Amino acid sequence: MHLTITDDKIDLPPGGEVILRHQTWLNYEKLLESRQDKAAIKIYFDAATQEIRIMAPLPGHGKKSDTLSDLVKALLRYQGQDWDSFDPITLKRFDQAGLEPDACFYIQNRQAILGKERIDLEIDPPPDLALEIDLTSSTEPEDYQAIAVPELWIYRRKVLYIYLFDGEQYQESFNSSTFPKIPVKQLIPNYVERAWEAGSSVALKEFEKKLREL
Results as ranks from 00 to 15, higher is better:
residue 87 D to M: 13
residue 110 R to V: 15
residue 24 T to M: 05
residue 32 L to I: 14
residue 212 R to E: 13
residue 118 R to K: 15
residue 136 T to I: 08
residue 28 Y to D: 04
residue 84 D to S: 08
residue 118 R to N: 15
residue 140 E to R: 12
residue 112 A to G: 04
residue 143 D to A: 13
residue 184 V to S: 06
residue 201 S to Y: 14
residue 80 G to R: 08
residue 172 E to N: 02
residue 120 D to E: 07
residue 14 P to L: 07
residue 195 A to I: 09
residue 154 I to A: 00
residue 108 Q to I: 01
residue 113 I to Q: 02
residue 133 I to S: 04
residue 162 I to N: 08
residue 152 L to P: 09
residue 142 E to P: 03
residue 122 E to R: 15
residue 214 L to I: 05
residue 113 I to T: 03
residue 25 W to L: 10
residue 51 E to Y: 02
residue 27 N to Q: 07
residue 109 N to K: 14
residue 196 W to K: 11
residue 10 I to C: 12
residue 156 R to Q: 10
residue 54 I to T: 02
residue 153 W to I: 02
residue 176 S to I: 00
residue 33 E to N: 07
residue 206 E to R: 10
residue 8 D to T: 06
residue 24 T to I: 09
residue 101 P to E: 03
residue 120 D to W: 04
residue 107 I to T: 10
residue 104 C to K: 05
residue 94 F to W: 11
residue 29 E to S: 11
residue 3 L to A: 01
residue 121 L to V: 09
residue 82 D to E: 14
residue 58 L to V: 00
residue 62 G to I: 10
residue 159 V to G: 06
residue 91 L to P: 02
residue 177 S to W: 01
residue 136 T to R: 05
residue 201 S to C: 12
residue 89 I to Q: 06
residue 164 L to Y: 01
residue 94 F to T: 14
residue 9 K to E: 03
residue 131 L to T: 07
residue 107 I to P: 11
residue 127 P to N: 15
residue 100 E to K: 00
residue 26 L to H: 12
residue 21 R to D: 07
residue 198 A to V: 15
residue 43 I to K: 15
residue 179 F to C: 05
residue 23 Q to P: 04
residue 111 Q to S: 09
residue 32 L to W: 07
residue 135 L to P: 03
residue 99 L to R: 03
residue 171 Q to D: 06
residue 200 S to M: 15
residue 151 E to L: 03
residue 68 L to G: 09
residue 3 L to N: 00
residue 135 L to D: 03
residue 94 F to D: 15
residue 30 K to C: 11
residue 205 K to C: 08
residue 26 L to R: 10
residue 110 R to F: 07
residue 31 L to Q: 08
residue 181 K to Q: 00
residue 212 R to Y: 08
residue 91 L to N: 02
residue 173 S to L: 04
residue 122 E to V: 13
residue 92 K to Y: 11
residue 77 R to Q: 10
residue 147 I to C: 07
residue 2 H to D: 12
residue 211 L to A: 11
residue 25 W to A: 12
residue 197 E to P: 02
residue 184 V to G: 08
residue 202 V to R: 14
residue 1 M to Y: 01
residue 207 F to I: 03
residue 82 D to K: 13
residue 77 R to S: 08
residue 31 L to W: 07
residue 90 T to I: 12
residue 84 D to V: 08
residue 21 R to F: 06
residue 49 T to S: 15
residue 131 L to M: 05
residue 34 S to M: 14
residue 87 D to V: 11
residue 54 I to L: 10
residue 145 Q to R: 14
residue 58 L to W: 00
residue 117 E to Q: 11
residue 41 I to F: 10
residue 12 L to G: 00
residue 117 E to M: 07
